[in-house]
Nucleic acid binder design. Structure first.
Lengths: 339, 339
DNA sequence: TAAAAAAATCTAAACGTTTATTCGGTGTAG
DNA sequence: CTACACCGAATAAACGTTTAGATTTTTTTA
């Protein structure tokens, strides 16, 4: 194994007959270095395709140019799109992203956060596990001084920057739309009740009823998991009520799809007698029949803006935490009647 | 900003009254260090929640414990599942993964590969862009001595470790299945013709015809993109042929879904008069009506094994390149008749 | 019991940057 | 003509590990 001794800033300096510090400054600052010298350095490094050793510079300067991303899943349209957004912004600003997946398991999340080598990170982007009531591990991490931005699934009682879609608003839009289309018995099949966004969406759903002066029945709200099968089962349960609903607002598109399948199976005409609306704008919305009307979640934008915000925190440690709310958009398709 | 001076191995050594080298070895090797001493070190570092500085140790040792992953997309069931597999293996073996996304753009891919800081990576996992005929950038990278494993979309003429699903075999299975079910005019809606896996799937499709002695018509093979809309359009084209096919084998599930939509629209009874089979086992297979019969791609396993193979290369630079072929599995649903 | 071997630990030199400080020139003001 | 400021560049000390090789201590062997 002939490891050719690595070629460094020192060699560049020697070749140019100048000192390493000058090369180092030429490669970054522009400050305090003659434009002419700088040009010579850049030309040579370009020609030799020379790259700084990241470990050495991270060690000396304390900046790694790495951002950690902690998420529950990636096999999921929403999260993978968020990552795309993060990636895009990071790439443009010269940061790399290091990926950590918790599998939505609080134990793994804790272990992971505890073992994260903060020395190799300039900052952290986190979307917490569903059942993450416990947040001490985040707090100790934050106390260590590492900049953190939470996105999508955020802890309630932590003072930190957060980026989320406007769940209340989206749910309000969705519900109001159903009411406008003439549905008067609207159910909501929700997610796990602990998660802040299921609470927010529920709140929007209720507020829309209040504002439109449409009475609301408690038994029309069901909390369960996020899967297609949960949507299916919840809908079955709703249909067997003495007075079943005539519309469903689902917490996400997967559950909405499950709902439509249950309705199709019961020979109820979705998009006419019965309205269904989802949340996300997952690609499955255009494969289910009838195509699903839904609230589009700005996943890419959430990723991009979280990353942008984090980089601000990294560059300026005094930057004040802020919360960014990104609105969703109603996308009309065929699962709600159109007149 | 009170940056509390970072606490290092040196402080541990002082507290224990031993030298730094002993601490360093205790923290890794076990070799040449008294078990008793080792225990003391581990207890203290545990108690203080001490972590080595990754940059310093990478600089000194040359090992970063980071693996780079280069992929075309992540907003896609297949790739995100592959990443899950990579993540899982990397996590278990104590490696971090750094993510690079090319957007399937050869220019971006080239630029990215050229700029990748090899100093921060122990190895690289790559799935190339569709139109990546040019492979010099990979070759220079490999010559630099960085271990590389290609997966899924692999370059043809490069001598390196590769992990792919058995495309030929899957396509052969799919086509044979259609023939067995009595379909005799089977079309293939393929992907971009340059990609090796579209060639392999085509080969399997053709071989199945040959082996079953079923005649095959050239105009039944159409090359185009990967999207749902491509599947839709290709199917329209096939249906307008003087003698249209009575079954379709699609290069992936998205195109199969497009095909079913076109067939539904033309009021052709999919699963009876007409058979459709896909490739991937994307979650959309269970939302389209009728549910899609397909070949499951072992995405997670591909990720896991690629990563495992790469780590072997990292640990043993003399490890010989090998190619791993992972078989797919037929999943019967309703888009092919069952008797 | 002396010599040799093995085990445990230490010393100190890397690793390749960054950056505070120093230094030498050159231009400018008094 | 001296003193001062200023610009560009050099020196050298970090940064926190790893790891040969040296050294000390302990065990084994003859």
């Amino acid at each position: 194994m002939v490891m050719k001794k690595s070629f460094g800033i020192k060699d560049i300096a020697k070749m140019l007959g100048i000192s390493v510090s000058t090369v180092s400054r030429a490669l970054r600052d522009a400050y305090d270095v003659n434009p002419e010298t700088k040009k010579r350095v850049l030309e040579l490094t370009e020609k030799l395709n020379f790259k700084l050793n990241k470990n050495a510079s991270a060690l000396a300067s304390g900046n790694t140019k790495n951002i950690g991303v902690v998420i529950p899943f990636i096999t999921n349209y929403y999260f993978s799109t968020v990552i795309s957004g993060i990636q895009e912004e990071a790439y443009n600003q010269g940061y790399n992203i290091i990926l950590y997946v918790t599998n939505d398991d609080i134990e793994r999340e804790k272990k992971l956060i505890e073992n994260i080598a903060t020395s190799s990170l300039d900052g952290l982007l986190i979307s917490i596990s569903s059942n993450s009531h416990i947040v001490e591990h985040f707090e100790t991490m934050m106390r260590s001084g590492l900049p953190i931005v939470f996105f999508d699934r955020v802890p309630q009682h932590i003072q930190a920057s957060k980026v989320v879609q406007s769940d209340f608003d989206g749910a309000y839009q969705a519900t109001t739309y159903l009411i406008e289309k003439g549905y008067d018995r609207i159910a909501h099949i929700a997610g796990p009740s602990e998660l802040s966004f299921t609470q927010e969406r529920l709140r929007g759903y209720l507020q829309a009823h209040t504002d439109a002066k449409v009475p609301h029945h408690k038994e029309y709200v069901i909390f369960s998991g996020f899967g297609q099968s949960h949507g299916f089962d919840d809908t079955k349960a709703l249909l067997s009520l003495p007075q079943p609903p005539n519309a469903i607002f689902a917490v996400n598109d997967r559950k909405a799809v499950g709902a439509i399948q249950a309705l199709n199976q019961a020979c109820i005409r979705v998009g006419q007698d019965f309205g269904v609306i989802g949340f996300t704008n997952d690609p499955i919305s255009t494969v289910i029949e009838p195509n699903l009307t839904t609230i589009e979640e700005p996943a890419f934008e959430i990723g991009r803006q979280s990353c942008q915000l984090l980089i601000r925190h990294i560059k300026n440690k005094d930057f004040e935490p802020r919360e960014i709310l990104i609105p969703g958009r109603l996308i009309e398709r065929q699962s709600v009647r159109s007149d």
